[in-house]
Write a protein that binds this DNA or RNA. Sequence first.
RNA 1: GCGCCUGUAGCUCAGUUGGAUAGAGCAACGGACUUCUAAUCCGUAGGUCGGAGGUUCGAAUCCUCCCAGGCGCGCCA
Length: 588
Amino acid sequence: MTFIDIFYEAVRFVGTKKYVLTHSSATETMKDKLQEIVTNAALSAFAAGKLNSGEFGVVSIEETKTADHGDYATNFALAGASAQKMPPRKIAEAIIEHVVDPDGIIENIQIAGPGFVNFFISPPAWHPVIREVHEKEGLYGAVNIGQGRKVQVEFVSANPTGPLHVGHGRGAVTGDVLASILNFCGFVTDREYYINDAGRQIRTLGLSVYLRCRELTGQSVEFPEDAYRGEYIYEIAREILAESQDPGNDTIFKMDEDEAIASCARLAAQRILYGIREDLGQMGIGFDNWFSEQSLYDSGKVDDTIRMLKEKNLAYEADRATWFRSSDFGDEKDRVIVRGNGVTTYFASDIAYHLDKYERGYERVIDVWGADHHGYVARLGAAVSALGFAPGQFRVVLAHLVNLVRGGQPVSMSTRAGQFVTLREVIDEVGKDAARFIFLTRHHESPLDFDLELAKKKTNDNPVYYVQYVYARISSILKKAGSEHGISASDIADANLSMLTEPEEIQLMKQIARYPETMAGAAEMMEPHRIAYYLMDLASAFHAYYNKHRVLGGELQLCRDRLCLVTAVRRVIGNGLTLLGVESPETM
RNA sequence: GCGCCUGUAGCUCAGUUGGAUAGAGCAACGGACUUCUAAUCCGUAGGUCGGAGGUUCGAAUCCUCCCAGGCGCGCCA
């Protein structure tokens, strides 16, 4: 029985909310509607002889930056000028002439600048968005990109040789939220942790603990350079000594030394893995599967993979070693998979591991790594290609390193001396919500300064509270609506929204309408930070509205319309925070 | 030496996959609580998008070459 088996016996899966989408089509966004209108207008214009060519690519609709340019714009006329052999403004005129808008969503159309066509949206056209939020409840924004395809996100996968640090935390949150977003967008998503429990690091861990045991019992030791020196090694050693059956604390010293080291390794790795799992649990992160590297060796899959590569002539022997032909698949050079001494490399088991992932039915495989491993991407990508999988089926997301700072000053950390601030210490100090949100306030490939003082601040320096405050404020309004104004949930649901005419209200509706496409972008680009930024924008739009207009107390119909709007905002905020793994507090 | 990432306001960062006059927050300055939570809002100021070429109707975004910083380049894991 290996330590991973023991680990499994005790592990209770920490459940993460999972979505199963039943709708097969995406929500039709305002952009989609306009795209359809413009495409049809172009077809009609061509049929009427107003355009020279029927070849128009995909019509793109963009949001405008300034209100002067309307709500949306298309560059159709500019992009098609050469194909049509017409000046852009002529094309734009032809399009506008043939626009058919049966639902009346367009209030005004203008040609501007070199040939942009600007669309001004009629305010009531946003109403269906608010209704949709209420109807779909927690599933608003769930664009079904995945269509039930299986995807696996592997993340953290830190070696069980020491506690997690802040950099691991960033990768953990990136992977966890990415998995949530993909799941929300219709993928069947599993989270997996790969445990490097084979190889030399584990033995080094065992040796480190063993030597500390000897040291603690007064024996003289020479501590090798590559051994682990953290305080946690002492703790584990003390524990092992305390659990000794022998009154003289020397049970392990009665073993053969190799056996004793192996025993220490097993116990230490098990204990550290428990700690890792607990730390991740504190972050609100759980895994569907913990996968043991050793199990790939035990089942013979590593050997099978190497044999298969040789049979397919994807690997060859030279200089007594076995080489994988990575250079045939985009890597700089071929890489060793079996060393001259017969020992397989980490790369060999990684190939076997990724093959195993696909054999388990995952159509897409995503690995979240620390940026310090980026030199490994081409190699593994080459392996996946050689195994016959398409480039789109494998993706490495690199989470860049985190600099821990306190009040602007770097927190000194020396890995070599084993002195570093652990992830657990950070979470205990700043809280799960702040930690998670701050990790998501940068693009994952951008370096991040994590400021402990700022993370604790309850001001608008700290975006997590800024967003949560929206939820709390609206919750408070809703309570008062019921208790002091006697307005029920069904009153709110029945609101006809026609009195929502303030610019801030239209801005809010427009912002809510943007949620599905933001979600789709985050899923397609695998950029979880987009959701965090979206929520900050929506929060900003709400706070501005809140400070300028009162929801309660006015004319009843207006009050109901505003409650309906504000409830939709609350739902989208809550929905987004849930995806980010952050709480939505009713009061703050 | 080679490869990847980063370079945008004083600071920290976005920038909808090539769009129009480059945006937020912090810091600075000036305002807004008798009112649904001021953990909020409004206003002012702040820029050669590291630099130089190129591609085209149009570049922070794409290509080439430099500059600066970070990381990685083993029959290590």
